[in-house]
Each structure stands twice: as C-alpha cells, then as structure tokens.
Design a protein around this nucleic acid. Sequence first.
RNA 1: GGCGGCAUAGCCAAGUGGAAAGGCAACGGUCUGCAAAACCGUUAUCCCCCGGUUCGAAUCCGGGUGCCGCCUCCA
Length: 445
Amino acid sequence: MKLYNTLSREKEDFKPLKGKEVSVYYCGMTLQESPHIGHIRAALTSDILHRYLKYLGYEVNLIVNFTDIDDKVIVKAEEEGKDYREIAAYFENEYRDVIGRLNILEPAFYPRATQHIEEIIKLVQKLEKKKFAYQKDGDVFFSVRKFKDYGKLSGKKVKDLRSGSRIKVNKNKEDPLDFVLWKKAKPSEPAWFSPWGKGRPGWHIECSAMANYYLGDTIDIHGGGSDLIFPHHENEIAQSETATGKPFAKFWVHNEMLNIKGEKMSKSLLNFVPIRDLLGEFDPNVVRLYILQAHYRNPIDYNTEMLKQAASGWEKIVNFLNISKGAGGKLFSNLIEDFEGKMNEDLGTPGAVALAFDIVNEGLKADKKEIGSFRETLSFILGNLGFDFGKEKQELSPAIEEIVRLRNDLRDEGDYGTADRIRAVLEKSGIFIQDNSQGSIWRLK
RNA sequence: GGCGGCAUAGCCAAGUGGAAAGGCAACGGUCUGCAAAACCGUUAUCCCCCGGUUCGAAUCCGGGUGCCGCCUCCA
C-alpha cells in the first residue's frame, strides 16, 4: 500500500517497523464542544486506515486520545458553571455515541490527558534535563530554536514564522516561538502538583507522552487533521525526538478540512454542524458515503445538497441489495483486485466507491446465476469500507411477509384502493414496498 | 510575506502519456393498476489560462491566474 507521508510530501510504500504490527496514534478531539462533521471526517479517515491495514493482514494497535484538560475546556466549564471533568465527560460520551452509530471501529484505547499527568511530568523533566526546556514563574517552555529539525513536518522555517503577529506572546517566553509544556494554574483552575508548582499540561505534551506510553519511542503512523500539522504535530516531534533521540513517527497522515461555504468548519468560526444533528436527518451510511466519495486529502465543501445526493446514491445501493436478497455466490476476484488497487493507492476511497456503483450497475443487469456473486462482492467491498447494512430486523419478516401476501391478494382482486392504503401505512412505519409484475418486495427504510 | 493543497460537465468526483469512469440532478422513451425500482437514450470535441516537450498530454516541464488551509485554539 502506498500512503502519502506529510513528512516527505510523497506517497511512500507503507511498511511497518516491526513485522505485521502497526502502531497508529491519532489525535482525537479536545473535549470542549460537540463533535461536528469535520471531526467525523478525521475519525472516518482513521477508520478507513484502520480497517484497510487490518484488511491487509496487519495487527493494528490504534490509540485515539482525548484532550480533556486545556484552556478551552476550562473556559467552557466556567461558562457553564460546571466542573471541567463534567464537561469533558459529556463531550466524550457524545463523541463515542456518534462514533458508534457511524460504525467506526474502536481503537485499542481512548486515553485522556488527565490519566497521564505522571508521564507528562516525567517527559517535561526529561526535556529540562536535556536543557531544551526552561522554567519561569511556574510555566515551563520548550526552546524551539534548540531543536534543529524544527519545521521539518510543516515545511516552515523558523525565520519565516510570524509568531505573535496575531496573538499576544506570553511574557515569560525567552523566544516568541517557544511553546508551553507546563502551565501554571490560576487559583481557581484545576491543577496538579508538579516540580514547578501547581499547574496543568500544555497543549502538545499529552500526545507525546501518551504516544510514547502506549506505542513506544517510534510509531508507524501518526494522524490527524491537516490543521494540526502546525504547530501541534511539529511541536510533538520536537518534544518526542528531543526526549528519545529517535524519530517520533515514520508516517504522518493528515486529512484535509471540511469546509462550509468555502470556509473551514470550526468551533471558533461558529459555523459547525454537530454530527449528532446530522445523524437525526441522515443514515450513518449516507454520511460515510458522502465523506468517502472524496479523497481524504482533498477539501470537501459541506452542504445539505451534497448529503442528499449521497442519500440518493445510498438508496441505489440498498435497492440492489434488497432486490438480490437471498442470492449467494462467489466473490469476483477481479473486482476485489480492483478494489485493492484503488485502496492501495493512498486509500483511494472515491475509486472504491465508484467501483461499488459499477458493481451495482452490473448486478442489476446480471442474470439470476450471477446476481448473487455481484451481491457478495459488493457486500464484501462495502463491508471493508465500514458500511453497515446488515441490520435487517429479520424477526419482523414473517409478519410483514404475511401482510404483503394479503395485500397482493387484494391487488389480484382489483382492490387497489385498500392495497395502496396498506402500502402507505407500512411506509409510515418504515416498511417500504415495491410492486412489480412478479409480486412485491419489501425492505425497512 | 512564508509553507502546503486544490483547479475535470448543472453539482460531486475518478483518471496522471495513447479513443474523457462513476454518482447525483435534468430531459426524452420503455415497463408499470398507481407509486417506486429497473431498463434504453441524451447531457464535457474536451479537462483554469499561456507557452514548451512528444508521433501523441487532462496527464510531463516552464510561467501565470483563482480558491482553500496553516503560520493563533482548531479534525
């Protein structure tokens, strides 16, 4: 498989450091607000990577973190008049709820920053000992200029950075580029005891500490949204590589942003659509289709029209699966190879999705002998892309089938009025009936 | 100002040197008690612009233009 590596800005052949094991660290979200579709795009990207690595036979050790303590969480807690832990737990639950509904595979762990304060403190001490960190008034900073590789991920040069041009620089910093590792707490703020007094971790340090704790000094893949490249991931590299003296991650994978009306969807711009709201309107498979139809490294523009288009497309797939229900057959190995060909090329989900539609089209034209094979092949591909279409409530089947039979008796007798009313009533309860010359088929909607 | 990404039909989107995939939408037709589905046909002489390389370029090279992201918390 080829994967685009932000570090080299090239697609590279993916090979794990160690045999068949792959360690993946993904930056999850800061628990300060409801997850929106942009977060979900990142989560779906990690899910596709996770699933496809497994598909290729790798044993994937995936860690997705939650940042449950930082300035924004504290601000949110103050606004709401609640403890920061309550805020963090609330949004974590919401995140995990929608992730589950979207059929995103669980990582091995979802560690939280506050569970690793000890590791964080040790890491900061290590940096201090190596003279890459300094303390001032209870704050601890990382000396960016001492890390000679600084900028290697984002392609930035230290001299070109316009630090402080848009925000005030903390006066305790020796250099505006330096970033905080440990932050002194104000009396009212949540705090932990440390060698530097009471305080809390800075934003970037928790990821370095947790990645190291769970996955070791060098990990195979580190991922996240492209907006994290700088400064977050750049700073993680600086901290981790200074501490261990080894490369932090071999591959850096970043998904592009999801925009709304040409602007990035984000909390600060107040233009975000909570995924929970969206799932009230659209099937999770539709959301997945919408996201996967675009390549993860291309920006997507969000609007309802595009989701409606995805919904129509999903209908087409579901319709075929319903028409071919019960038919079985062997997988078409050439189509599976096509699927792998698309996915091996930097997770080419748009191509894989297009292939799925090709299969639907072929399947609709296929004769009875082959339709099952198209169905099986399609299911196989969709399943490996994380679509979840197996939830047919079969226990309803006998009752529904009897009603459908009775209704068809009415149709045979020419009582179309009653038959149409039954169809309308059933549709209201989510049972969708299609009539044709051979009889009727039904499915849950 | 620096760094990165993108530019293909009404919309979304593949293709990366040899006759422009696919989805949605639209229109016409077939089938159908009706609805839905399905089927057939139509919808980019052309891939942001200008040069160049080549027998041949949407695909490679050079130069522009536009949009987006990052340089500040952000997936």
